[in-house]
Design a protein around this nucleic acid. Sequence first.
DNA 1: CGTTACCTGAAA
DNA 2: TTTCAGGTAACG
Length: 281
Amino acid sequence: MPELPEVETIRRDLEPLVTGRAIAAVEVAPDAIDLLADMPIEALRAALTGRRFVSLGRRGKYLLFGLDDGRALVVHLRMTGRLVHRAAAAPALAHERARIALDDGHHLRWSDMRKFGTWAVVDDPAEVVGKLGPEPLDAAFTPAFLRALLAGRTAPVKAVLLDQRRVAGLGNIYVDEALFAARIRPDTPAGEVSRAAAARLRDACREVLEHGIENRGASFSDYVDGQGDPGRQHEYVQVFRRHGKPCYACGAEIARAVVGGRGTHWCPRCQPKPRRRAARA
DNA sequence: CGTTACCTGAAA
DNA sequence: TTTCAGGTAACG
């Protein structure tokens, strides 16, 4: 469900609502064991109850809740996880499986239809996020960095962008949108992306993510923000899930195929196959 | 490297 | 009934 813009929107929503708040109680549904990577529910409850939230950060698609004992609650929403701030008396969310009671009469409610999301309390968030690639909105994500990432690889450029160890935070929506904006076909072998195209792609990644944040995320199905409201970015996508419809730029029919194991959308005219270096006569 | 599994519900 | 889903880890 959530990619960088969706997780960042939730982070910005929740940060002022949880920072400084103490944790009065933690309730986890009995069938929510798989929520926790390694920790028994009782250990989670003991680690959180009585603690105070001191910060809320994000790395890639992870939310990092800093605790006043120096540890951190690290949450990943995977496909359908939701984290919503609600008055304590508010009715349960659909598929609600956990809640954190704050000391101001509100809850952080957790729901997760597909049960893929994870929580972990760790001494150092690097235990979880240490292997991620750079943030695409940081200065370290330069054209030269991206070019080096792609160089020499035969995997589709889309697969490289989706690999969180190489760049952190891009997912299926924003990769398709960035490749459209950069006029690169998603199945192009990464090593065949030209220097100029790689430079366009670097800018395109940043632009689509920034637009996604400005529009508070894309709600194609399950994503909601920290208040439980959908975003608007799905109204502005150029190619994602638009297969069979006309390209806004040229009118050609948007195509769909599986690339890198994921449903992939592109404009066959705006994103032509790269011109192979002419064979020597 | 690509494929499969994890789980549930909506859409085709 | 079958396919598909915004993610990732574990396979071969």
